[in-house]
Amino acid sequence: MEEHFGNRRDEPLTSEDLNVCNNVLDDLCAQMDITDNGTVTHLASIIIELYRQGVHEPEQLKLLAGATRDDPDP
């Protein structure tokens, strides 16, 4: 039996939500000169996760998602 507790992570994003996330991704990739598909995909997943957690302001999304790129690779 499937239970729902109002978990926003399980709700599909609307086209408007995806538009915001895509614009943030495009801006970040342009600013950081990211062209590698794996890196773009990873960054997109971070942006979507932040968005689902309630960060909907594009500048805040850019700041938080961009900060993950400042970490050195392990």
Score class of each variant (00 low, 15 high):
residue 66 G to I: 06
residue 48 I to H: 03
residue 71 D to A: 11
residue 11 E to L: 10
residue 20 V to E: 07
residue 42 H to Y: 10
residue 7 N to H: 08
residue 5 F to G: 14
residue 40 V to D: 02
residue 56 H to W: 04
residue 73 D to L: 11
residue 2 E to P: 13
residue 69 R to F: 04
residue 69 R to I: 04
residue 44 A to L: 04
residue 2 E to I: 08
residue 60 Q to L: 11
residue 10 D to A: 09
residue 51 Y to Q: 01
residue 59 E to N: 10
residue 73 D to F: 00
residue 22 N to L: 09
residue 26 D to S: 14
residue 41 T to Y: 08
residue 49 E to R: 09
residue 16 E to M: 09
residue 63 L to K: 11
residue 42 H to Q: 12
residue 39 T to I: 12
residue 6 G to L: 07
residue 15 S to T: 14
residue 28 L to N: 05
residue 73 D to I: 10
residue 45 S to Q: 14
residue 22 N to E: 15
residue 15 S to V: 13
residue 24 V to G: 01
residue 39 T to N: 08
residue 21 C to W: 00
residue 54 G to C: 04
residue 12 P to F: 07
residue 26 D to V: 13
residue 64 L to R: 13
residue 46 I to N: 06
residue 47 I to S: 00
residue 13 L to H: 04
residue 4 H to N: 12
residue 29 C to A: 14
residue 36 D to F: 05
residue 61 L to I: 00
residue 37 N to K: 15
residue 22 N to I: 00
residue 48 I to M: 03
residue 40 V to L: 04
residue 19 N to A: 10
residue 23 N to S: 10
residue 4 H to P: 03
residue 14 T to L: 08
residue 73 D to H: 01
residue 42 H to R: 15
residue 21 C to M: 08
residue 32 M to T: 09
residue 10 D to I: 03
residue 1 M to G: 13
residue 20 V to P: 06
residue 15 S to H: 12
residue 27 D to S: 15
residue 73 D to S: 10
residue 10 D to G: 09
residue 19 N to Q: 15
residue 35 T to M: 11
residue 59 E to H: 08
residue 55 V to H: 01
residue 67 A to H: 12
residue 63 L to G: 01
residue 46 I to F: 00
residue 69 R to G: 00
residue 44 A to D: 09
residue 39 T to V: 11
residue 2 E to F: 12
residue 27 D to C: 08
residue 31 Q to N: 12
residue 56 H to E: 13
residue 4 H to Y: 13
residue 2 E to W: 07
residue 60 Q to V: 06
residue 25 L to A: 05
residue 31 Q to W: 08
residue 37 N to T: 09
residue 74 P to W: 04
residue 52 R to Q: 11
residue 31 Q to V: 02
residue 43 L to I: 09
